[in-house]
């Protein structure tokens, strides 16, 4: 028969082994817990506005949307009824709005995928510029707006239509890619 005083150390060793195994499992436990369903949003946000400031504390970007959601492990922030205002030195440089939109935070590209509207206030006495289309892509890093689908551009009272456009905001360069038409009111 094994005497109790001999059992104790064996039990202690077993207990310690179980404790070590349990602690090891706990420390390896991934924070998100169980695996998320990739086809369902990880989170949704309703009626929100998000503002980013520059080094001088001035507004740099402001995003307002009816709803936003993101899928697990996906960089895109999906938006509904979204308006993105981008500022330069505290003044509105342009506004991009869409009924449905996607904003990839990694590369700073916004895809306006329904009822797209791009607006640039006129500088130094020049008229405002409005671009309307079904889909417009905006690279917020290079400040280039573009589309490959039909767009209508209002420049003051003048109206231009084209299939496809590219607008380089920094250079003030607007290219109408094809089937360009303009009604220029002086």
């Amino acid at each position: 028969m094994i005497r109790p005083h001999r059992l104790f150390p064996i039990a202690l060793v077993g207990l310690m082994a179980m404790l070590a195994f349990w602690l090891d499992q706990i420390s390896r436990w991934s924070p998100s817990g169980k695996e998320l369903d990739p086809s369902r949003p990880e989170y949704t946000v309703d009626d929100f506005s998000a503002t980013r400031f520059d080094a001088q504390g001035r507004i740099q970007e402001r995003l307002v949307a009816k709803q936003g959601w993101q899928f697990p492990k996906q960089p895109d922030l999906h938006l509904r009824e979204a308006v993105l205002d981008s500022y330069q030195a505290g003044a509105l440089a342009y506004r991009a709005a869409g009924a449905i939109a996607r904003y990839n935070r990694q590369d700073g590209i916004a895809f306006l995928e329904q009822k797209a509207h791009f607006f640039k206030p006129g500088a130094a006495g020049q008229p405002d510029t409005h671009v309307y289309g079904s889909r417009i892509t905006i690279n917020t890093r290079t400040r280039v707006a573009s589309a490959k689908t039909p767009v209508e551009i209002h420049y003051g009272e003048s109206i231009a239509n084209a299939i496809g456009f590219e607008y380089q905001q920094q250079k003030g360069l607007l290219r109408l890619l094809s089937h360009a038409r303009v009604k220029y009111v002086q």
Partner: peptide, 17 residues
């Protein structure tokens, strides 16, 4: 001269600056 100008073309480039 007072009338709007209508232009159509295959492509167009406007350099605002």
């Amino acid at each position: 001269q007072k009338k709007p100008i209508e232009i159509s073309a295959d492509a167009g480039t406007l350099d605002q600056l």
